[in-house]
Simulated scan of single mutants.
Amino acid sequence: MNRAGSRPPSNGSTRGRPRSAAVEQAILDGVMNLLEDGVPLGDLSVERIARTAGVGKAAIYRRWSNKEDLFVDVIRAAESAEPELPGTSMRDDLVVLLESLRQRSLVRRLLAILINAHAQTRSSPKIWAAYHAGVITPRRDLGLAILHRGRANGELRTDVDLELAVEMFVAPLLIPSFVSHDPDLPDGLAEQIVDAVLQGLRPVNS
């Protein structure tokens, strides 16, 4: 796959680059729209993607050698940056992190990508590895960093397994997303989860 190398030099003009960027975005949006409509990744053909995006098949083949590479870029394009944390306390940071995860789980497009990425765990380890590296790991690392600061500040017991604690916080949001395509994740759920879990993780004298 060679995107930049396939584009001709601008020769002082940038007219060609916006068109190339627009085509690429149209293809990514086309895949996202199909996934959002409930089409499994395995059922997506280059012909169908091209038709949905309004481009020729050659435009897809010039950018991606296979559907795996295309879907990896779809994952990267769909995900937003991690939230800015207030830094006022471990609880406040956790609430912001979980609220961001709750909001993401309510976006049909992101939910469809999550379900498809998980479904490809066995048939396409490359896709799941890309999702894990680009989405799960950064979010998990952010959660661990919050808990490490909380433990250093005396907001968390020193004997708490931080890896397990991260899972305790995020599982109530992730499990409904996998079970239901329209998960019930009401306002205030982030605060409810954080406060419930922290009851068992705070120092006894807090």
Rank of each mutant, 00 (worst) to 15 (best):
P8K: 12
D161C: 05
F169H: 04
R63M: 11
G143L: 02
R63S: 11
A130M: 08
R7N: 09
P83D: 01
V74M: 09
L162E: 08
I113E: 03
L162I: 10
S10W: 14
R19I: 14
I27A: 04
S105F: 03
R151W: 04
A119C: 04
P8C: 10
V194E: 01
G12F: 06
Q25E: 15
F71G: 01
V197K: 01
S10M: 12
N11M: 13
V55T: 04
R139H: 05
Y131K: 11
V23E: 08
L111T: 08
D29T: 11
R202Y: 01
M1S: 12
N153I: 03
E167P: 04
E191L: 00
M32V: 10
H118T: 13
M168W: 02
N116A: 10
D182H: 14
E36I: 08
F178L: 15
E68H: 03
T137L: 10
L94T: 06
H181E: 13
L35G: 08
A77S: 14
A50F: 14
A130P: 06
H118G: 09
D69E: 11
S80P: 05
H181N: 14
T121S: 08
A133E: 15
V72C: 13
L98N: 00
R149Y: 01
R91A: 12
R17I: 10
T158I: 05
V55I: 06
V160P: 06
R76F: 10
R3F: 13
N2Y: 13
S180V: 08
P18W: 12
K67Q: 02
A77R: 15
T88R: 11
R122Q: 15
V204K: 10
R91G: 02
L201V: 05
P176S: 00
A50H: 13
A165L: 12
A53I: 06
H181V: 10
W128Y: 14
F169Q: 05
